[in-house]
């Protein structure tokens, strides 16, 4: 048995980035909120750059709780879809051209989402990472942490449950 030849780094990166970009840029709400994802290997960090339209309390000023919830939910859904997609991307069982023309894989559906607001969101960029604590055939549980200036000082966290898309749906 001969081993598969190791692919050049650019080929691997291009495929991973194309998959991520298709996933993120295909969703209008994610675009509207200005949310982007940084990738290091399989690790994703969601970034929501500050924008005036995200303000919920103009007096403080502070980010809107709903904008924060939307940011965390986006981080959870994309993080979960990415973790499921990862294996297909790595084995090449995945058509990034399909994604590029807007054929998204079916995304997980939120069953419930519980946000803890730990401190007010400052008028700065916000970051978040999702951890998939359990991913089964039908259900998944995901935890999200969000911070601004200091990684150790979370301003919000959330736990959500998701219904996984069935494989037959493509």
């Amino acid at each position: 048995m001969s081993r598969k030849p190791i692919e050049p780094v650019q080929v691997v990166k291009q495929r991973r980035d194309a998959a991520l970009s298709g996933l993120v840029h295909g969703v209008p709400y994610v675009q509207y909120m200005g949310i982007e994802f940084d990738r290091r290997g399989d690790e994703l960090t969601a970034v929501m750059p500050f924008d005036e339209k995200l303000i919920g309390n103009p007096m403080l000023p502070a980010l809107h709780g709903g904008a924060i919830a939307g940011f965390l939910e986006t981080t959870a859904v994309i993080g979960l879809a990415w973790s499921v997609l990862w294996e297909d991307i790595e084995t090449g069982n995945f058509d990034s051209d399909e994604l590029a023309i807007g054929h998204l894989p079916r995304l997980p559906k939120t069953i419930d989402f519980n946000v803890d607001y730990l401190r007010s969101g400052l008028p700065r960029d916000a970051y978040a990472r999702a951890r998939v604590n359990r991913s089964g055939r039908r259900y998944a549980s995901v935890h999200v942490e969000a911070w601004q200036d200091q990684r150790g000082k979370l301003f919000a966290q959330a736990t959500g449950h998701f219904l996984m898309p069935s494989k037959q749906d493509g």
Partner: peptide
Amino acid sequence: RLVGDPETGVLHGGAVSALMDT
């Protein structure tokens, strides 16, 4: 602009969250 699933046109949960929170 607030659609979460472009195939179905269903609103994103985040938009509903913002409405509920407010």
